[in-house]
């Protein structure tokens, strides 16, 4: 199974037979994008740029968010990015974001370490997408 990831960490993660504890990397499987671009690398790059245009500024917003304040703005960003991350095929990141969104929606709160983990996952995902553009 070919994964369109090119960074060293991604390769290490994907090639490992046992779960890659400690350093996890967003595992991207762009089935939808691959199918739609139908082997056209330019079209694929166009889709990737579309997603990056939203992911990059929203990652900045998430990094600047204050978990001690009401978390509705964080929930809104998580909700927005969740679908995009899913289309790209980053299932692990999607699951984390969905869980955190649900937590806030049901009246709970996420802490700084949870938010940092999401930001780290998103940052890795963006890095992987940028690699694909090269």
């Amino acid at each position: 199974m070919a994964f369109p990831t090119t960074t060293g960490r991604s390769r290490e993660f994907l090639n490992s037979k046992t779960p890659f504890y400690g350093v996890s990397c967003p595992n991207i499987a762009m089935e939808i994008i691959d199918r739609l671009s139908a082997g056209d690398p330019e079209k694929k790059k166009y889709y990737i740029r579309l997603f990056l245009d939203t992911l990059e500024p929203e990652l900045g917003n998430l990094r600047g968010a204050d978990v001690t304040q009401p978390q509705e703005p964080i929930r809104a960003i998580l909700h927005k990015l969740k679908s995009q991350v899913q289309t790209i095929g980053a299932r692990e990141t999607h699951a984390i974001m969905a869980q955190q969104e649900q937590e806030i929606k049901s009246g709970g709160q996420i802490d700084q370490s949870q938010l940092d983990e999401t930001c780290r996952q998103l940052s890795d995902l963006i890095e992987n997408l940028q690699e694909l553009l090269k």
Binding site: I32, L36, Y47, L50, F51, D53, T54, S83, Q84, T87
Partner: peptide, 16 residues
Amino acid sequence: DDDIPNTEVLRDFLIR
């Protein structure tokens, strides 16, 4: 839909 990239991808999918 306010989700710009996904709307674009869905549009292409439907056109296809």
